[in-house]
Structures are given as C-alpha cells and as structure tokens.
Amino acid sequence: MKLRRTLAGPLGAIILLVVLMSLAMIVAGTSPLDGFAALFQGALGGTSQIGETLVATSALLFPALGIALAFRGGLFNIGAEGQLLIGALFAGAVGAQLHLPGWLGMIVLLALGALGGGLWGAIAGWMKARFNANEIIATLMLNFVAAYLSLALVNGPLRGPLATGAETAWLDQRYWLPTLLPGSRLSIGILVALAFALVLYWVFTRTVFGYKLRAAGDAPEAARRAGIDIGRITWISLALSGAIAGVGGATIVTGELHRFNTQLSPGYGFIGIAVALVGDLQPLWICLAAFGFGILEAGGLAMQASAQVPKDAIHVIEGLIILVLAARRYVAARTETAAV
C-alpha cells in the first residue's frame, strides 16, 4: 500500500518518459525499438559507454543532492545551475594558476568549488533570512548573475591565453582527478558524489542539524516554537546546498574538462531538480535516479549520433517531467500550509 504510493510518482514519470520519447522518435522518423536500442547501447554497451553514463550521473548527482538538502528544509533552491557554475569558476580560475603538490591541489580545488557554490547559495539564503525574499526568485535570478559574471570574467581577466571561447587556461595535469575507469573519461569525482550521498543520508536521519532542517521544512511553525532558528537554518541549508552543487562544478573542471568553460553545464542544475524529486529527496534513491538520468544524458547523445533523434528532444521531455513533479510537490506543500 505504502510502497505503491511511493512508487507511483517515479514509476509514472518513467512511463511518461518512455511514451513521450517514443513519440519523439516516431516524429524523428526512427522506430522506437531502434531508438531505445541505440540509447541503451550508447549508455551501457561497454566500458567507455558506462563511463560516459557515470560521468553524467556524477554531474547530476551533486546538484541533485544539494537541491534535496534545500528542499528537505522547505526551500525551493532552483539555483543549483548557478551554484555549480560558480563552484566550477572558482576551481577553474585558481586551478589554472596553482602551484601545489597534485593531491593537495585537487583537494584545494574541490574545496574552492564548495566555497564558490556555498557563497552563491548563502547569498540567496541571506536574502531570504534578512529580507524575506522569495528563495525561488532569488536563486533563479542568481543563476543569471552567475552566468553573466563568469562570462565577463572568462572573456576578460581570466581568459586562457590560447582559449577561443569563454574559457580559462587548462589545469596543470597533476591536478586532474585520477581516472576511475580506464578507457573512459570517468574520474574519481563520482566517488566524491557517492560519499556526499552517504553523508547526507546520515545527516538527514541521524544528526541534530538534519532534524532541525527537516522540522523547518515539514512544519515551520512547530519548528520555530521548538526553538529552532529558522533564519539560521535557511541560510545554512542554502549555503550547504550551493556548496554541494559547487563541488560538482569543481569535479567537472578537475575530473573531465580540465579547464573552466562558461558552457560546461548543459543544465545539470535544472535536471538535478528532476533527479532530486524522482529520488523522493532521499539521498540513496537520488543516486539511483541520477544513474537513470545519466543513462538518458549519455544514451541520448549516442541516440542522436546513431538514430538521428535530436538529443534536445530528451531535454524537452525531461523539462516536462520536472514541471509535473515540481508542481505536484509545490502544490502539495502549499495546500498543507494553507489548511490552517
């Protein structure tokens, strides 16, 4: 009974996804059987394919975990994209100039990612706690600020000498995260992501902070009366949320791309919302959801390359699913608080 209820959402989303993707394939003139064969072959058909899927999984897992943390605290952080970008910018900008032993450099760069993303989240949190600014609007707008700020910096002072687009110089090879799966692009960044998932699971279920966070999210008035400082929880959770997304950005820089590019995320911070919601905001389920979406990302590209179905079709469909899931959750939250 209960299992059926928890599965109905994600399962419905998957079925919807399959139906819509089939339609997209038919429109593109490809048989869905061929399309899905190409998708799964491209996502799981070999070491390199699995590597690509896990690269996308890792890139989605960080922002999704950050988003889950904020959502559990009742904060609709839709600024993971900007937080990820700023985290990547910090890592890329400093990484291009760094003079440290390799392993220390890697840690420093990931920490810088956390700092950058955390700062970006904290700004929104501070605006909410201090001025009661709506966090949805604050985080959304900060995405644009992040995009234009990084573009201005990378077109200007941070631009790599040989860069032709908006890019920093390449990182010295000793700061590249080691490859996890030889013969693929997969770095140990995904292990960092999984470690974050485990820590977050522990934070949610065991710690006092996690308890306060969930109370603030599930029953703000009861939490306030229980002596929980909601303002503090607000900015801390948005800062942590941003920090996790920022580490994600830093792992993209140090793990795969090895330089900062303003276009390094094809919307991981937004798709991450869907990943978090499909994962029911539970860190361990989110890992599974991120893997599913990773298959779509990597397989989608392969599908485009072999079956001529534009990858964008998948993004459109993913967007629809985000919309449905987010609206459902938001409406549910609204009606619960309205029924006073």
């Binding site: 308890y211 969930r214 599930d218 029953a219 009861a222 009366r225 229980a226 002596g227 006073v340």
Partner: peptide
C-alpha cells in the same frame, strides 16, 4: 500546526523542542 510535525513518527515528535 504549532506542536507537531504531522508526517513524522511519534518518536521523532517526542524529540521536537
């Protein structure tokens, strides 16, 4: 609204405050 977190268990609510 003010005393309980309705979706939580009794154990978790006993901790509140």
């Amino acid at each position: 609204r003010e005393a309980l977190v309705m979706p939580w268990s009794i154990v978790e609510n006993v901790v509140l405050g």
